[in-house]
């Protein structure tokens, strides 16, 4: 594993890239949220990450776990909607999995703890048209790619991002069962979930940063598994 100072540098770079992306996508997120929610997702996320970036100087003295925890508490304090407890609370809680630094193993534990906390806090299940629909395939793909396929973490993460992207697409044709969008009932069908979308944007920026810090030895064409390798009939 990279030593702590490199981990810290990469983490800070990732945070800055995420903040810049959220700022660039502010109106996209707000437009998605105004269709099926309360039209505050872009502004809320931007305000949260703007406050996070102001703390970068403090991050220079912190461990990776403490940096992630501070990102969480800062988002809790600055994001007014459900994104505050969902993003901030889950980061704060999952950060303890990174106490021994960022490795393939701890990153899987972090991802699983984060997903569990989001599901628990939001009381959301898969298919409710929420960020869980992007996170679940991403976390499962990441874990499987490392633990069963022995792929390097960077390649596993690239597959996870692809899985998240298809999770976001999956939110479009389904009816919302959680959040403000659920008040719209059938009218929520046909709209992309804003929380799943911001989750994807964040993952894309983390991947981009990881590629820079891990020499970019990734398969740009990496895709998550979607169809079985073999014809089930032939496999019998």
């Amino acid at each position: 594993m990279a030593d702590e100072s490199v981990q810290r540098e990469a983490l800070i770079a990732a945070i800055e890239n995420v903040a810049a992306r959220i700022e660039a996508e502010k109106s996209t997120l707000t437009d998605l949220d105004s269709a099926i929610g309360d039209a505050d997702h872009g502004n809320n996320m931007h305000r949260g990450f703007e406050a996070v970036v102001e703390k970068v100087d403090e991050f220079e003295e912190m461990s990776p776990a403490d940096i992630v925890k501070t990102v969480g508490t800062t988002i809790i304090g600055n994001v007014g909607g459900a994104s505050g407890p969902l993003y901030g609370g889950s980061l704060m809680s999952a950060s303890q999995e990174l106490e021994d630094g960022i490795t393939a193993e701890t990153s899987i534990a972090f991802a699983e703890a984060y997903l569990e906390k989001v599901k628990d806090r939001g009381d959301a299940h898969l298919g409710a048209k929420t960020m869980v629909d992007a996170l679940t395939p991403a976390v499962h793909t990441y874990k499987k790619s490392i633990e069963h396929d022995d792929l390097p973490p960077l390649t596993a993460f690239a597959k996870a991002v692809d899985a998240a992207e298809r999770g976001v697409e999956f939110t479009v044709p389904i009816r919302a069962a959680k959040g403000r969008a659920s008040f719209l009932g059938w009218r929520s069908v046909g709209h992309q979930d804003p929380g799943a979308t911001s989750t994807l944007f964040i993952m894309q920026e983390i991947l981009k940063t990881a590629e820079e810090y891990l020499d970019g030895e990734t398969d740009a064409e990496a895709v998550a598994e979607s169809v079985p390798d073999e014809d089930p009939e032939e496999a019998k």
Partner: peptide
């Protein structure tokens, strides 16, 4: 009540 910034929302702190 509110998000602490004068907007509609809620705030844990």
């Amino acid at each position: 009540g509110g998000d602490g910034e004068g907007e509609i929302g809620t705030n844990a702190n």
